[in-house]
Every structure is written in C-alpha cells, then in structure tokens.
Nucleic acid binder design. Sequence first.
RNA 1: GCCGCCAUGGCGGAACUGGUAGACGCAAGGGACUUAAAAUCCCUCGGUAGCGAUACCGUGCCGGUUCGAUUCCGGCUGGCGGCACCA
Length: 804
Amino acid sequence: MNKYEHKQIEKKWQDIWDEKSCFVAPQDYTKPKFYALVEFPYPSGQGLHVGHPRSYTALDIVARKRRMQGFNVLYPMGWDAFGLPTENFAIKNHVHPAEVTKKNIARFKSQLKSLGLSFDWSREINTTDPSYYKWTQWIFLQLFKKGLAYKKEMNVNWCTSCKCVLANEEVVNGVCERCGSEVVHKTKSQWMLKITEYAQRLIDDLDEVDFVERVKIQQKNWIGRSTGAEVNFKTTTGDILTVYTTRPDTLFGATYMVISPEHPIIEEKWANKLNNIDAVRAYREEAARKSDFERTELNKDKTGVCIDGVRAVNPVNGKEIPIFVSDYVLMGYGTGAIMAVPAHDDRDWEFAKAFGCDIIEVVSGGEDVQKAAFTAKDETGILVNSEFLNGKTVKDAIPAMIAWLEENGIGHAKVQYKLRDWVFSRQRYWGEPIPIVWCDKCGWVPVPEDQLPLTLPNVDSYEPTENGESPLAKMTDWVNTTCPCCGGKAKRETDTMPQWAGSSWYFLRYMDPNNNNALASKEAMEYWGPVDWYNGGMEHTTLHLLYSRFWHKFLYDIGVVPTKEPYAKRTSHGMILGENGEKMSKSRGNVVNPDEIVETYGADTMRLYEMFIGDFEKAAPWSPKSIKGCHRFVERVWNLFDKIEPSDAYSKQHEVLMHKTIKKVGEDIENLKANTAIAAMMSMVNDFYDKGINRAEYKTLLKLICPFAPHVAEELWSMLGETSVLSLEAWPEYDESKTQESSIQIAVQVNGKLRATISLPVDCEQQLAIDTALADEKIQKAVEGKNIIKTIVVKNKIVNLVVK
RNA sequence: GCCGCCAUGGCGGAACUGGUAGACGCAAGGGACUUAAAAUCCCUCGGUAGCGAUACCGUGCCGGUUCGAUUCCGGCUGGCGGCACCA
C-alpha cells in the first residue's frame, strides 16, 4: 500500500469538493436546516493565526456531521474588512486600503481553504464591498428615521495615536484597546446610536436563548441594571437637585450631597450665588484635564470643594446639609448628583472622613460606623434613627421609603443602566460613509435610499487631520452637495462608521448574499434564521455580540427580520496560548503559523490537534510535540487499511465497541467535546490493532473520522472502492441496546474503600451482586471477623459493605 | 473592591445527575526490527514500602455532610478573565 502523502491527498479532495459543490447550501427550503456560524475574520496583514482554526474547525465538525445527517447546512465565511490596521498600512506604504484588503483576503482565503473547512464559498461576503455596505448604510438610515441615530455634542474618548474617537467599549484601563495609547477627553459632535433604549430587552431576551452562562452574565453586568429611586432635594435657592440612589432606605442618614464637577446647575443657576465660584471652576478644570487613566489611578484619595452659598434640605427631616463638588460623582451616570450617606457607603464614608462631614448610623447590625461604613443590604441590618422606618429590615425599608416618597411627591422608583449610547462616528477613511447630509435650512437630511450605496471616494491621502476631522473632509468635491430635501447647498457628513457596523448584521447577508433589493429576502430569512449555533470569542461579548443583538431587535421592530434574537445558541472557545503559556503575540515571539503545520503534517493533523489540545472552552498552550500524537493517529488509521478482513457486518467481538463509539462521538460533537471524541476513536483504533478489523468496521471508522480529518477519510473511502463522496454519506447509526457489554466490571468497597472488582451481568439483582461480592476471596479477607452492618448496592456501579 | 471561572501525574488533559481517580495523547524508560539511525510495533509509567501478592498515601489548603467526595457545603490560598468612584 502507498505511503500516506498528505499534500497530494488534501489538494485532491479540496478540488473534488469544490468541483462538486459539496458544501454549497442549496436554496431548498423544504429540508430541515442548520445554520452554523463562526465570527468572520478581520483580514490582517499577518495572515491566519492558529487561534482562528480552533473555532472554525469545531463548528466545521458540527456542520459536517449535520450534513451527513441530512440537514441543509449553511456554514458561510466572509471578511470583516474595514478597519484601522489596513488604513495605517495603506498610509505607510502609499497603497489604497482596498488593494491591501484584496491582498490580505486572498492570503486568508487560501489559508482557510488549505484547512479543508466546509464553508459555502459561493456565499462569501465582504463588508467593504459597496453592494454589501449599501445595506449597512440602509440600516443606519432606518435607525436615523426612527430617532435612534442622533448627533450629539459630547465628551468623547479620543485616542491620541489613532486620532480617532473610540466607543466606551473600546477603552480598556484608560488606554486604547487597539494600540495601547493614551485616551483623552475631547468634546466633539458625534453620531450616537440609542442602544440604551433596548437595555431592558437585551437583558430579558437572554432568557430565550441558549448562550453559555458566562456570556449571559457578562452581558448583564455590562448593561448594569440597578433599581432604586430618584429623590428631589430642595436647595436654599429654591432649585431642585435630583439624585438617584439604590438605597432610599438610608435617606435619614444623608448628611451632605455631592454633585459632579460638570453638573450644569453650577453655571446655569448658581454662577452668581456662590461665594467660591472660582474655586469650583478651578476644580472642574483640573478634573477635565485628567485623562480617564489618571482619574482612575487617583481614585484612592477623595478630593472636592464645598459649595459656599447654597445648601440642600434633606426632604425626610428638613435638615440643611452642605453640597460638595467632587469628581467621584460622574456626570454620565444617574443624575450627576448624589445624596451622601457616609455611614452606609464606602466612598461617601471616605469623603466624609476627609472633609469632616457627619456620619449618622441609620442601619444597625454592623461595626461602629465611625470606623467603617456598614454596607450590607441583606436581612442583617435593621433601620434605626429613621422614624417610620425604624425596626424594618433594609429589604423592607426600601419599598416603604419609595412609597413614602411617591405619596409626598418627593421622588419615585427608578431603574438605571450602566450601558451608554453607542458612539458611532469615526474620523477615519476606511469605513462606511455615513449617508447623511447637512443643510443649513433643513438640518440633517438622509441620503435618499435609491442613491445607496454612497460609495467611498478615492482620496490622495488617508492621513487623519490633526484637528480630528476625517480625511474625507478634505475632499471638497465630494463634501459639497445639494440638499435632497430643498435642493440648496449642503455638505456631506465626513465621519465614517465604526468597524462594528458591518459585523452587526452580516449573518443575515449570508442567507441571501446577492440580493440587490433587500438585505436578504423574507423567505431566506424565515428559512435560515435564526443562526442555530454561533461560536466566537469572549472578547466580543460586550462589543459585537451586544451590538448585533441590538441591531437585530431594531430590525425586528421595523418588520425586516422575523425573529427577536439573531442567534439561538452561542458558545465560546478558549484562547490558544504560546508554548510558554502566555498569550501569542509578535512581541513575545511565540506566534505559531498554521501554514507550517499544514505543510509538515497536513490539514487533517492540524484539525485533529486543534481539537485534541484540550477543553474547547478553556485556554490551552500550544505544544509542538503533542501534534505528533495526532499525526501518528492519522497514520495508524492509514496503515490499518492493510489489515482489513472482508466482512460486511460488525464482528461479534467489536459490536459493542462500534455502537458505543458511534454514540460517544456523536454526542461529544454536539457538546463541543471533540477532544474526548478523538480519544474514543484513538482507543477504538488501538483495539483494532489488537484484535483486527473488518470492512464494515473500517467503513464506520472512516465515517466517524470524516468530520475531524476529512481528507484522509475520503481517500481511504475511495481506496475501499467506494465511488461516493464520503462527506455526503449518511452518518452511522447506533443501537442503544448494543452499547453495553452483557457483563460488567463493578467495584466492591468495604467502608468506602475499593477492595476488589467483580464481574456481574448488566442490571443484575441486588442479592446476586451482594452474594458475588461476599464470595470474593479478597472481600472475605477484608470483612473477616467483622459485622456487616449495612450494604449499599448501586446498580452497575458499586457494592459497598459497611462493617464494624 | 465587585462579578464570573479555574486549581487533578513530569506535561496537555479524562472522570455521566456523589460511586473503580488519572481515559486519550505527549514526554520518559525498556524491548523487537535494523549494520546503524529515523520510522514502526510491543511493554512499563501518580508517590512510598516490598522480589511479589499487597498495603498505605494521593485531585491547591483547612474543616463539614455522606456508607462513599475531584464532584456537594463552609472557610482560606493561588491563578485567569471581565467590570470598576456606576451612587
């Protein structure tokens, strides 16, 4: 028999699959469907990383199995190709970003093809293709028309190196997520999307989908719902200062108030009433000058200024209390003002200690509140010094106080979210143009839908400007236009959309990728939607995954898509780390190039190793040595070919093994446990080396291996004389009643310690189990001279004798 | 600080709803084949004691529940990820 030559075999079968369009999902809407999705990559200049195939192979295995089970399977791939690295490369090397993108895509595509992934390449999409971003722009216009896209002058995160605005989600520890440079605050007019309007539904509908729990938790935490009350405090000037609190029960303990340095009431109402307005303004300017990074770095020591000239009145007891300005109160959350209860809040306590404010205990049950704040919200605390709340638990006092506030018109229950609206503008070239025009007469006017796509014009230079304008602003020919509304002079919006725009709806486009009249046809969306199984990285939980759920819900509301949620199931893979256990990165020098593995061992070995490396959901270090084990397995399957006996039925000795393994492999694939599925197949092959194998057994083995190592499986299948394409053959069936041997080894314990193993018929009577156990020599020795006071028999598992 | 996850041989990792810990693979050691090496095939492989049958110990640490705990509960220690002055 021939030697195993992976290069020839893999090329051969990839060509055959292509020629026969084996993985093209037909527009046959009568068969049961299965839509498997993996996150489409950003085609970077570095090419594929070994991390990419982990996700792709895992769902490829599921897709291949489902295809063999008769499903109409859609497993598509495309390119999320707008983005900064491409633009920066273009600037540096004086090439058009579209050229760079084209080249990178070609490289990625050939790399993906070399892995034998069963993508339907006829549905390939590219977010930078005008026929694609036409619909990204169209969705934006719908958001605009419904008032969910709006322009706002606001304090934004500005990356000093990218020269670009960042969304809150893109700022990590006060630095730019992408380049690590300092992020400062800047006031700019920005397009915003009202994701906050969907906050509650984004939480509630998580109950309807099958997402791994950590994804749900992380999304809920990010949205950050809290319940409490808004309370109005009167001030000595007669103005009302509204606060939000989650602890209305502690209102009797509010001994001062704090407002954010940027609170508008200072300049609007109090500018000429404060004796120390200069000090307040100086403090505000100092706070504004700090970057996010500095502000969080310095968050240990509380700073602030007491307002001189206005005081507030605690509405529950009429006491006058001071008002402070401090940067520990944020303008972007709640009302930008708080009531401070130092006895029961750590931050207020620290501030009170620094500024000598009163600390009054209103919840008993903790230590001395002069020494530390008592913040427990459970039943341990009982209200004191709080008139009508005295004696109540915190849990009961909260609704009681809210009821009292509502009765007296002082306040009301309120739900707050940490989630903020999505900053949607980017001052860069390589993104979707925002299809809006500014007209001095008509304001912001949408580009008429029949004029979409609004294509990106060619510019001479992609450099962002120092003043923070998009490179498009320099294109006066393009910028100057006429108002679609009144026909007068108008200017185009020059900001572009963020990278997250194109990926927020791409899964819909795969359903019907060439449609020029809609983002996808109704029939296609009704058949294919929702995505049955979506796998991707945890790093996208609060970005892409949340954004795309938001867009989908919006599209559902306007009747474009038929389901509330885009993805029925979401799983998440762990990262592949370098050999040293650290994250793979160029700077650490531990990056593994998948091409080398494919070259040396072949795609089948690569695929097996990516799956065998460990628990799919956990991070795992790359190990070049372990790859050999997977390669040996492939060769052992290959060499087994010479040992095949001619028989068309499973041999008696292997019958249970066959049925058991079919069951195990099938279940493991569905549970993303390809690692143990491979282990089971390795065991099976070991057994065949021991005891021989026949044709029927070999055929089943090849079918089981096919989703994991499809090329070698196809080649061996054809070597058997079969003329069909194995990838389209039927998945093997098993018989539950034949998955167990008729007799079984069970453990016999004495006082919970293993003392012997005995062989018993499956599901045998308890008494027989006990008798057999007692008849065992070792057991007799172990219980000799002792009284058996109890026997525990667990069917097919153990017999435990309790002796004294 | 808050939320979530994790801790098992020399290594990656198995172990169903509490029931024979260490499947499968890597590395290592031994053997066969070979002039030799590679490859392949076979055997051993948690620790201690013993020639051996076997005994005792062993799933980060301390304690609990149970006939029985890697698995459940309480308290620690260490690591990873997310959020972070969110009122």
